[in-house]
Design a protein around this nucleic acid. Structure first.
Lengths: 202, 202
DNA sequence: ATTATCTATAGATCTATAGATAATGC
DNA sequence: ATTATCTATAGATCTATAGATAATGC
């Protein structure tokens, strides 16, 4: 009865939407089946367990986040330009995936052991990124163009401030219904750039 | 059969521990009863619903967090001294209540509507705090001692960086077993103070 | 009489599977 | 023959309550 030819993928797509919207615990296999236009038995037929289905989606989202941050390439530009581009690119990425950060954060807080398989991958990608960053920082530092700062602290400042911007926005949306506007993004971006450049000033 | 005279409170204490350790969803009324040394029927006898019991504890924790941050008093000190004291006091508070931040964050992410009743209270306390902060900032600014910054941005920088420090630590603990040491706190504190003072520099 | 406590269980919810049936590709 | 799909339900889990019983304070 292969009229759809892709029920398996419909289920995956439905699950992705629902997990991102509602999280693992609040999503039932019946909901997934309904959205995929099939019976809940089929969800188990293709993916055996709900946990299995979730792990795939969670994994792909974690990788998406990591890849975005840690595969930031070095272009032909000055160091401050690069920092500004990193901040902006990260912010734009989060903006295009507004459910991503609350989803991943929530699920990790809910069961931290879920994140353990990705810890290794994270550590490696992060290590490479930081190594490059440290090289850049040292060169700038030696030239007297920036203050003393560890790459880790700089990276943390950018990621944390960008992420918390979206977490706070998701709370505000729940409480007041306010949806982020261009001006909100721009105000945040400008403030973060100002802070980071101030921190880097010799 | 009043031999304990305080089963009601034992239940509350047991619930507080378990909710903070495991969260609302992973805690059963049977677990609470067991830790309180009674039967699960008693949990409902005294508090009717699990949600009820949770709401009390969650509310008290949210208030604890808010009170700590927003009732920060002005002492006789210079502005930079005050900023340093705010950062340090906030960090010390979070350190004394290490489960607090992951708990509140997780539960709000899990069901944002839970936080709505506190949004009003938050807005008010925050408003008063920010008003004072803005006054201080304007005075300093007029005297040419600091750069231009909104009080909101300054507050956000401190709270976000401190909170994320604990969230990251809770992930690291889950992944590698690492427990925060004095040196970790001090490194974070120093870095944050450096960043904030740099941002304030005229 | 009232309050505290216990046992037992109804009822809701959800995952996962067994077993039947229909479609598909050799 | 194999793969896809459906119906029906077993089994697990948990909250909340009914109903019985024991303790306590008048």
């Amino acid at each position: 009865m292969k009229k759809e030819e892709k029920t398996e993928e419909e289920i995956l797509l439905a699950a992705e939407e629902l997990f991102l919207e509602q999280g693992f615990a609040q999503t039932t296999t019946a909901q997934i089946a309904q959205r995929a236009g099939c019976n809940s038995a089929l969800v188990h037929y293709y993916y055996r367990t709900k946990e299995n289905l979730f792990a795939r989606i969670f994994g792909s989202k974690v990788e998406l986040m990591l890849r975005n941050i840690f595969s930031f390439d070095r272009q032909d530009e000055t160091f401050p330009e690069r920092v500004i581009r990193l901040i902006t690119a990260h912010l734009d990425f989060l903006r295009e995936n507004p459910r991503l950060v609350p989803f991943v954060l929530k699920e990790i807080l809910f069961s931290p052991e879920r994140a353990i398989p990705y810890a290794q991958e994270l550590a490696q990608a992060r290590g490479i990124f930081l190594q490059h960053l440290e090289e850049d920082l040292q060169a700038e530092r030696r030239a007297g163009r920036i203050s003393d700062i560890r790459g880790e602290a700089l990276l943390n400042l950018v990621i944390t401030q960008n992420i918390s911007f979206f977490i706070l926005a998701s709370f505000r949306r729940a409480a007041t219904g306010h949806i982020l506007e261009d001006a909100d993004y721009e105000a945040h971006r400008t403030e973060l750039i100002t802070t980071v450049l101030a921190r880097l000033r010799p």
